[in-house]
């Protein structure tokens, strides 16, 4: 069961998350930064609730009012030329 994949973009397993949470006794946010769970191509859209559920089980940390992992742009995959600002403006 521990080899169960939780974050499929970054291939982070249940064991990876559990081990990190125990080893560093850290917050949900730190676990994500250390393992990259929820930080892949989909921006955590697929696994975020699952990662949060695992951390609540492992560390007992309940969801607070803030979104557990800070959301940073770009929130969708975009090409570098788009980010470079060569697109039109209205």
């Amino acid at each position: 069961m521990d080899d169960l994949i939780i974050c499929r973009c970054e291939e982070v397993s249940l064991a990876d998350i559990k081990r990190t949470a125990h080893m560093y006794q850290c917050s949900a946010r730190e676990v994500k930064l250390r393992t990259r769970a929820g930080m892949g191509y989909c921006g955590g859209r697929t696994c975020r609730p699952a990662v949060d559920a695992v951390l609540e089980e492992v560390t007992g940390e309940k969801p607070g009012n803030d979104i557990p992992l800070k959301v940073s742009p770009p929130v969708r995959p975009v090409s570098l030329s788009t980010l470079g600002g060569s697109e039109r403006h209205e």
Binding site: P73, P74, V75, R76, V78, S79, E87, R88, H89, E90
Partner: peptide, 18 residues
């Protein structure tokens, strides 16, 4: 993919321009 605050509104950045 991103929204920025402007002085009198917002700029919405998309894959089809802003």
């Amino acid at each position: 993919y991103h929204i920025e605050k402007l002085e009198h509104g917002y700029a919405i950045h998309t894959n089809q321009g802003s």
